[in-house]
């Protein structure tokens, strides 16, 4: 399955979960949230393996601990005359990862072939944006390497040196990516014109 159909299926699954599990009746339903969590973990393992799952947990676990700690703190002060802040935080400790993974898995399932199969009108925009973000990343990494090895940007304390390098990177990236954007749009239109005149 590709293109618009795949996009519609993925977005309706996400909307369905958010409608029922985040802003809907099953927000505090532990069996429901628990089974969604198990499903997300399995899918995440299948798509990105242990490494991907470890990266997620490296972010999720500290955040969930902060959430529960803040809940206990608010309970201690009986904020807004409520005493269920910790209990609510524990609920969020299940809902937040599910909402986080549901969107991540949906977005991660999209491929360039899905964009190519899109209707012609939106196809050019999505393809160029996908191409530009993919192409500009090594370009900006290369610019950063050049900035970090520029002889004029080697002196001063770490914070000043990093600040100067970042300002130079932003200024250089502006014009470099502008040229890249202009050239990529030109090459795309030229190649499409070439192919439309010579269907192979």
């Amino acid at each position: 399955m590709k293109g618009t159909a795949k996009l519609l299926l993925l977005s309706s699954l996400v909307v369905l979960y958010f409608g029922l599990g985040v802003v809907g009746p099953w927000y505090a339903d532990v069996p429901f949230q628990g089974s969604i969590a198990a499903l997300c973990v399995l899918l995440r393992l299948q798509t990105s393996g242990w490494r991907g799952l470890r990266t997620d947990l490296a972010f999720l676990l500290p955040f969930l601990c902060t959430l529960v700690a803040m809940g206990a703190l608010l309970d201690a002060f009986a904020m807004a005359n409520r005493t269920d802040w910790t209990e609510d935080a524990l609920c969020k400790a299940l809902v937040f990862p599910n909402s986080f993974w549901s969107i991540q898995l949906a977005v991660g399932a999209l491929r360039l072939t899905d964009l190519v199969a899109l209707p012609r009108g939106v196809r050019r925009f999505f393809i160029l944006t996908h191409a530009l973000v993919s192409k500009s990343r090594p370009l900006i990494e290369r610019l950063w390497w050049l900035v970090c090895h520029d002889p004029s940007l080697q002196t001063g304390p770490w914070i000043i040196r990093s600040g100067r390098r970042l300002t130079v990177l932003l200024a250089a990236a502006l014009i470099a990516v502008y040229h890249e954007t202009e050239a990529t749009v030109r090459v795309y239109d030229a190649r499409m014109a070439l192919l439309e005149e010579n269907p192979s």
């Binding site: 610019l143 050049l146 900035v147 004029s152 300002t167 200024a171 250089a172 014009i175 470099a176």
Partner: peptide, 18 residues
């Protein structure tokens, strides 16, 4: 560098910072 056309943007920004 070999990609001098890209490095030129860094050079120009460095000159501006001077």
């Amino acid at each position: 560098a070999q990609d001098l056309l890209l490095q030129a943007h860094v050079m120009a920004a460095v000159l501006a910072s001077r």
